[in-house]
Amino acid sequence: MKQSLAIIITLMLLAGVSTAQAYDIVVVKNGDEMPMAQVVRAFGDKLVHLLPARGVKSIEPHRFREIDIRRNPIKSAVEQEILASRPDLILTLGRNALLAVRDISEIPIIYLLVVAPEIIIENRDNITGVNLEIPVKLQFDELTRLLPRVRRIGVIYNTGHSAMEIQEARQARADLQFVALHAKSAREVPASLEELRGRVDLIWLLPDIIVTNPQILESYFLFSFENRVPVLAFSEKYLKSGAALVVTFDMAAMGEQAAVMAARILLGSPVSGVPPADITRVKTIVNPTVARKLQLVIPEDASP
C-alpha cells in the first residue's frame, strides 16, 4: 500500500515538470555562402543549449529544415511550403530571404544579415531579429585600441545614405576629428579623396552603396597606399582588397544572439516583446601585410 502511494506521488511530481518539446524551425536562406552556415550553426548550438529537448519528446532534437530561395525563387511557393509544415519559428538569413517570408503573419520570424530591415518589416509584429549594423562606438573603440595615434578620420559619405553614421561617430567619439566629405555619386569619390590628402590619419569606409561602390573602391586603396593612410573597413571582404584593418560582425555571436531571441519567443514571449537588437560583439582583423607596408605601429598588447 505504501509502495503504491509512492509511485502515485512520483508520477504526480513528473507531471508537474516543464514539458519543453523539440521545435520545428525553418531556415530560409539565400545561397550557401560561408557566413550563413556559420550563423546557422551558432544559432542551432545555442538554441539546443537554451532549450534542451526534454519531456515526452526528449528523444527528438529540434528539427531544422532549410529552404534555399535561390533554388526556389517563387515567393508564393516558399510561403506555401512553410505554411504546410507549420513550423514553430522561421529564421531568415539575408534580405531576400526576409522578403520571401515577410507576408507570413502566423509564424514568428527572426531575421539575420539584413541591412536596413525596417524598410522590409514596416509594421509587422511577428518579425524581429539582429540588425546588420556595427555600432560606431564599438568600431572606433577597437580602432583606438589598435591605433591609438590615429586622431583624424577621413570619411566620404552620401547624405541620403550614411549621414547618420557620421553624426553617431561624432557623438560617440568626440575625441576624434572626423573630416567628412559629401559625395553625390561615386564619380566624386576620387576628387574627394584628393581633398583628403594630407588632412587625415585614416580613411573610414562606410557601408554606403553610393560612395563605397565596388568599382570605385580601388580609389580608396590607391589613396591609402600612395599616402600611407590606412583604411578602416566594416567587412572581412575588404582585407584582400587592401584595407589595413576591419572591425566587423562576429557571425557566431550574431547567431547566438538570434538563438536567445528565438528561445524567448518559443517559450511563449510575444514577438513584439522581443524587439530587434544591434549586435553586441564585434571582431577585429588586421591585414598584417598592409599594416607592415603602411608602417602601422600596433601595440603588442592590443593585438586582436
Partner: peptide, 8 residues
C-alpha cells in the same frame, strides 16, 4: 550591388 554585397 545590393546592400548585402557591401558586407559579404
Amino acid at each position: 550591388g545590393s546592400d548585402e554585397s557591401l558586407f559579404f
